[in-house]
Structures are given as C-alpha cells and as structure tokens.
C-alpha cells in the first residue's frame, strides 16, 4: 500500500472546482427543464387529454423503467439524428456530449417530477376547484394562482429530495467522458496515479453537499409537519 498523499487534491482543486460547477449547472438546468416539462406532463394527464395523456403516460413509464445510463446512450445516439431531421437536411448534427447530457437529464427528470406533481394535483382538495369555479376563475387562473402553488408547496420536500438524487445522478455523465466533478477527478487520478486520494476526496465533496441539502429538506419537512394543522 502506498502512503496516501492528499496534497494532490489541493493542487487539483481548481480543476475539480470547475468540474463541480459543471455538475451543479447540469443539476440546475435539469431541475428547471424537468420541472417545467414535468408540470406540463402532469397537467396533460390531469386533464386526461385523450391521445396526449396516453403518450405522456407511456413516456413516463418508459423513462422510469430503464436505467439512466441506457437513456444517456440512447440520447447520445438519437439526439444528433433527431436534430438532423428537425433541421431539414436529414444529416445527423453533431451536438457533442455536453448538450446531450443537458437534454437527456432535462427530459429524463421530467418523467420523475411529473409523477410527483401528478400525485400532488390529485391530493388537492376538491373544494379548492369548486371555490375557483364559484368565483368564475378561468381554468388558467385556477391552476396558475390557486392549484399549482399549493401543489408545489406541499410537494416541495419530495421535489427537493428528487433533486438531490438528480445531483448525485449527474455523476453518470462519466459514461459520456464529460468533465463533471467525478469526471475531473477520474482524469486527474489516472494522470497522476492517485486514484485513492481523488476518489475519496470526491466522495467527501458529494457527501457534504448532499448531506447539507437533505438536512435542509428534513427541516422543511418538519416545518410542514407543524403546519399540518393547516387544513
């Protein structure tokens, strides 16, 4: 066993930091896109729009049944082809792994967020809809100002827990050879032959960030548990 030397981690810190920034921006982008699409998907199912809601349900079931790595491979292969068709000339457009990762994570997470929001929509008291009807609020205003704000509020602990899992899952872009936090560590580890130090350091960084975030979620849960008397 070689003696451990963690000074390599300090030297590599700027590179790791840029990797971490990539992980965080991928998480943020996937969160925004996923929440936006997920809300749309959930509404489509909530309104039981005939063909569309069947399509959405199949999509959600599919995404939730296959491994994220396989989804990444699929999109890495499909996105250039689809964009080629969209752009008209039919030739695959090379988009690169970074964009693929952003597109994949956004679309993949949408499936998970949509399930959370769909269930949240079902949990809203029927009286809320009736009160909106009695006030003649339009469907748009009803969802925009009354229903969705309540859903987001009630579901926020679950949405945030899912986002912590998302943050951890971004490490899987390793299979696309991207330089996220883990990717950066892995490249340096192999360059310097310091796998043990690098991987341990990365594990600690992930641990600290995820722990802090779940602590925050737990406090949120507690807060809502007290406000549970709200109904």
């Amino acid at each position: 066993m070689n003696s451990l030397d963690f000074s390599i981690v300090l030297q590599a810190w700027p590179y790791l930091w840029s990797g971490l920034l990539f992980s965080l921006s991928l998480t943020a982008a996937a969160f925004l896109v996923g929440m936006f699409l997920g809300t749309l998907f959930a509404l489509v199912q909530h309104f039981e729009l005939r063909v569309l809601s069947q399509l959405v349900r199949s999509y959600v079931a599919l995404m939730r049944s296959i491994p994220l790595i396989l989804v990444l491979f699929w999109f890495f292969f499909l996105v250039p082809i689809v964009l080629g068709h969209l752009s008209g000339n039919g030739r695959p457009v090379p988009v690169g792994a970074t964009y693929t990762a952003f597109i994949t994570f956004g679309l993949f997470e949408a499936a998970y967020y949509s399930e959370i929001i769909r269930v949240g929509l079902r949990a809203v008291n029927k009286g809320q809809f009736e009160a909106c009807q009695a006030l003649a609020l339009s469907t748009f205003d009803t969802y925009r100002h009354v229903i969705l704000p309540q859903v987001f509020r009630v579901a926020s602990p679950i949405i945030l827990s899912q986002t912590i899992i998302l943050f951890q899952d971004t490490s899987l872009v390793y299979v696309l050879s991207l330089t996220d936090l883990l990717g950066a560590a892995s490249k340096l580890a192999q360059l310097h032959g310091r796998l043990v130090e690098m991987y341990l350091a990365v594990a600690v960084v992930y641990l600290i960030i995820s722990c802090a975030a779940s602590q925050f979620v737990a406090s949120l849960r507690k807060k809502y548990a007290i406000a549970g008397a709200r109904r």
Binding site: N125, G127, Q128, E130, A131, Q133, A134, L135, A136, V146, P149, Q150, R153, R230, R231
Partner: peptide, 18 residues
Amino acid sequence: IRSEVGMVFQSFNLFPHL
C-alpha cells in the same frame, strides 16, 4: 352566471396559500 352568483361552502374552501 358564476360571476353574478356568490357561493359560500360548508368547508369554507379558502385558498390556504394566500
């Protein structure tokens, strides 16, 4: 019609987030 008719429910149905 709904905007001319006011309704009060048994269970109030106030919007809890407002």
